[in-house]
Amino acid sequence: MKILVPVKRVPDWQIKLKLLPDGSGIQTDGIKWILNTFDEIAVEEAIRLKEKGVVTEIVLVSIGPEEVRARLEYALAMGADSAILIKHDGPADSDLASRAIAEVFKKGDYSMIMLGKQAIDSDANQTAQLVAARLNLPQACFASKVVVEGGAATVTREVDGGLETIKVPLPCVVSTDLRLNEPRYAALPNLMKAKKKPFEVITLDSLGVSADVKVRVRGLSTPSARKAGRKVSSVQELVEALQNEAKVL
């Protein structure tokens, strides 16, 4: 079975972000980019399904500028088979991503789409569900375990209150949570080989997808910082402060 894995390039979560002076965006000059953490987990899961003999082909897709190529090559080096870059320089919300991903799905013979549960830049947590609804497919979001067998996926989901396991027929849409797996690192020699794997560059136009966004970001700001309090030197002092100052005890 073929699996489609949409991946997004995001700023490294370890860097301190700075806003552009006019608040129209974040400063991206020279910053480090990574594959969205949840997408790396999706790529890893797809590779494991391939190693188990369940998946036969892993196709990556990303909507973004030319620079995303390096991140796609990294995921190819991890073990994906081919990549599609939908070149797009403007803003892209989850809705736009979902429309493009749905069209790519229709053009291939895929049994599953595995996405991250959320992009750690926009923190939207929508695309998987949007794709599933557009294609009228079952969804299994926030997965911490995926077993594919007999034309169905049994997925354990991280939900409020604990864990829920659902069984959905293929084709289906899965979104990954943090505890699904620990992604491998791409080995250096594989990074060289990855450059030879099939890599297709297309446009939104060629898919018949408009570049309109439904969620328009008007401006960004930083939240007011919480000011640090003080150190206490003993449990006794802490208890007194909670009683008398903070009045929460």
């Binding site: 974040i26 969620v215 008007r218 939240p223």
Partner: peptide
């Protein structure tokens, strides 16, 4: 970061 967004 806090974003101000419009739903268009």
């Amino acid at each position: 970061i806090i974003a101000e967004v419009e739903l268009s």
